[in-house]
Design a protein around this nucleic acid. Sequence first.
DNA 1: GCACGCCTCCAGGAG
DNA 2: GTCTCCTGGAGGCGTGCC
Length: 855
Amino acid sequence: MDAFKEDLEEAEEEAVEEEVIAETVFEAEKPENTGTCYLLSVSYNGRVGKALIKLYDPEKGKIYFWYDNTGHKPYCLTNASIDELRVNPAIIGYEGYDHLEAVKKYDPLKDEEVTMTKIVVNNPLAIGGGPKGGIRELLPAAWEARVKYHNCYIYDAGLIPGMPYRVKDGKLVPEGWGLNIDTPSPIKGELQDELVKEWFMVLQQPAPDIRRAAIDIEVASPAIDRVPNPSEAEYPIISVAIASSDGLNKVLLLKRGEEELKEKALNGVRLELLEDERKLIEETFKVLNDYPLILTFNGDNFDLRYLRNRAQKLGFPKASIPIVLGKDTALLPIGVHVDLYKFFHNKSVQVYAFGGKYREVTLDSISEALLGYKKIAIDKLVSELTYEELATYCYRDAKLVLDLTTFQNSLLIKLIVMFMRISKLPMEDVTRQGISGWIKNLLQFEHRRRNYLIPRPEDILTSKGGAATKALIKGKKYMGAIVLEPKPGAYFNITVLDFTSLYPSILKTRNLSYEVINCPHKECRSNIIAGTPHWVCVKRRGLTSTIIGMLRDFRAYWFKPKSKDKSLSQEVRSWYSVVERSLKVILNASYGVMGHENFPLYCPPAAEAVTAVGRYIISRTIDKAKELGLEVIYGDTDSIFVLNPREEDVEKLAAWVEEELRVDLDVDKKYRYVAFPKLKKNYLGVLEDGSVEIKGMVGKKRNTPEFLKIAFSELIGILASVHSQDEFVQAKEKIRSIVRDCYSRLKGRKYTLDDLAFKVMLSKSPKHYVKTTPQHVKAAQQLANIGKRVEAGDIIAFVKVKGPIGVKPLPLARIDEVDVDKYIGHLRTTFEQVLEALGIGFDEVLGLKRLESFF
DNA sequence: GCACGCCTCCAGGAG
DNA sequence: GTCTCCTGGAGGCGTGCC
């Protein structure tokens, strides 16, 4: 209930945000004819009362505006008849009410055509979301009333953000989509040709590069590591750095006292000293208005917010400030603002698009992982730096942000454009929303395209029911995947087989989608999903099954193989690799959102049907493998580890799987050897090329102290060089010396506090830990006691010490109070995980008894 | 009073 | 604010022993 209320409030905020745009008077050119442009953004302009489209002209590097001229208006649907509504004064007398229309829609839950009434209004707030509640609150039942107007406009106009368009005689038309393109045959299947063709054009179309500038500001804060409050904006902005893709690289500095600049430029970056802060801000606004794309890192909540509020404080007229603040956003009237913090924060982007290369979502951590260089470290207040030091520091941040979008041929821009096209979201939205927002919008677009009524979440739940299986873990909603018990030990020549995109394949081949599972037809009830009481419709194809299945096929049969096809040019291959990665992000989340309560198409039976089929598929495959004489050592969800198989047996198995289970089974990789401890989700393997893969083990976890990580990686280095059983014996000796060395350095307190620190993230603010007080929270509390601010997302570094509390944060700890025995315990668990798999005892390696006599 | 076992919470990972 | 499964470590509580 609370969550529902919060959602309501949020929806209100966002709708109000659309209105706020009315305050600004900024306009870009609105030509009657343009060349080929890219659709970056769709929003609602309250002042004009129309949908506003921002087009990017790559030739000129600038933005054009195009306002809707088709007369499209906001609306919602209801099941009340026109006659009933016509006599309802609350509705027809509502401010902004326009007219009523009878419309026919296909209701996917009922599988029948229904007649609905469309209530059309003159501004989005009349439907809902404003302070007055809107018409949707007055109706007994409303459909599609929570779809944001700009998204509704995209659906109805069939617009695809990120695709090329042009304005021709005042009309917005698609341009250069490659209409004569041939769709690859493996994908067509029973799908409608038109659908496949459009999607293929959309994926195939290369993405533009976009002229852009990154900005970063510094504020004269009176205290070190105390971030100034952007709502107050009480301290002066002392520098603004701009790093751009078109050669404008400069730092604006606020003049203090009599001090003059020593240099006019530093490494090609122009330095400009400005007499007063108003001028500095005005110069910054010029940049904001000039560039089609402005990049920041946390600009929504800091840089742009501060700039806006500071300008207001200094007396700028509201309408002259080119920054529009929302509850959690800072948008631009002309160009588009992308806050990279928000984009990199997206878990799917982090894990699937960037392979988990960065772990903390900070500019330092991301840039180091992706670019190989990072922020400049300073140990005093920014206001105490010389002009040159300040400029260097500030510019570095802007440059990092820019480079994050330029590296690998503007990979990031291309990914964003692909995500826009797939999700049908404007650039501002796609970079700020999570994966569920993307998939929601993608599916709603496809509903509207087919004239499907978008169902209300409560109707899906009541007509489809809840989950029938029980999760293994307490508190989870339904049962998930199978993880096999590994057979502990080291094995040579292991082949890993995996089902390509298992869950998306299941969605496709089992026809899983919210509307077709537990469908209303009697004759479908016998088409049961094994392991569940649910049945699936045999009369029609589900929407999710169709769309996700098609995207899966595009990736598996076209973009992924083509991205590795050496006969294609490097440029084409790298484009296909971008597409393939974007599809992977969508595919990997497509099943998860069905099991997510806040997803508007939440459907527990569909989610659990996917995992049930997954369990069925891996179990049957393992049985068949055994029957063929293959030895399965381990498996997890969609993979099986087979010991030294004959190629023809693998082929036989794959053929059987395809025929019998209707999924693809492929060789994923081959290990020279793999070592399994007793534990699930833990192993260490050396691939044929000598590269090492470590899964799950504590030695590679982020929060593990550095000294253990180092010792662990030395151990890995030794194991990587092992080629045969005999070499293990020599390896053992080397391992022994590592462990002993570690042990004696611990005992002798030779490590620094840094080496020994556990670095654990506060997942919430310290006061929200009510059930227990974990160690990192205890350390955080001690930091708070000495006046340091600690909040959710901070990484707390602490060491374990002797005494009642047991931990101290790094700044308060001394090396002599460290609890050495605790650390030896950690040394033990870290190494035992690996050694156990190799049949070596930890105590045996250490020679514990003898060694201890030395101390 | 205090070991001890048992359960829960939390962070971080695999897939 | 996709999902479930799995692990290590600590916190917290009840029980039985001295």
